[in-house]
Amino acid sequence: MTVTKTHRPALALRGVGKRFGSNQVLHNIDLEVQSSEVVCLIGPSGSGKSTLLRSMAFLEEYDDGEVFIEGQLLGWEPGLPRKRTSRAHLNKVRSTIGMVFQQFNLWPHMSVLGNVTEALIRVRRIASGEARQRGLAMLEKVGLAHKADAYPAQLSGGQQQRVAIARALAMEPHIMLFDEPTSALDPELVGEVLHVMKQLAADGMTMVVVTHEMGFAAQVADTVVFLDQGQIVARGSPQKLFHMTQHPRLQQFLQNYLDRNAFWQDMKEEATA
């Protein structure tokens, strides 16, 4: 599939800053995400990567700068002093974004299919029969059509996260934001979620992913962005970024992962020996 890259980026951040009280958590962030690009945000905990991602959905109200979703300013009216846009306008700009959370955030009192079709029926005003068809198709995509009538509590964490992805995809977003989608999962369940995400990337979805899964970043990302103390310290293709030696913080961060992998490698070798 060839994707024509329009001049306008899918997502653009210009000088975005965010404070919690007197604590500046994001400094002057500039970032562009092109259509069909996969960007991974990495960095130590507390580096502001989740706050940055949440700012891209206006779940955090950024204080400075601008976030453009397909050319439209997100959350604020143009000009100063800052004034929130109407909810209707915010929803309109947001409607091209799908969000997946660390804690899944499924609605426990609705069935799996109910979770997926709720917004189709209430927001898109699609008839329930058709919504059901689309919901089942989405669940098929994440391999969970057979669980349509189950309730979230009856599913494993990995299955719940796949339902959450289907719920977001049902609204046909152009951009998908993932906030540490595998961090709340038991290690053996991480793979199934990453598999769905890889497929999505292969289908040409524009994605921004906050993650600790370096393997996923190396394999799938077009661009990896390293954040530290609320600033973008380094960015580039995975091959390039993982070999940048001029940034001591990045080196240290990556070394932690390599050490851990080396440890597992040693264990495996010992076990087979």
Binding site: A57, L59, M99, A119, A168, M171
Partner: peptide, 8 residues
């Protein structure tokens, strides 16, 4: 938050 993101 999930509900708001979906536009409810």
């Amino acid at each position: 938050e999930a509900a708001h993101m979906l536009g409810l």
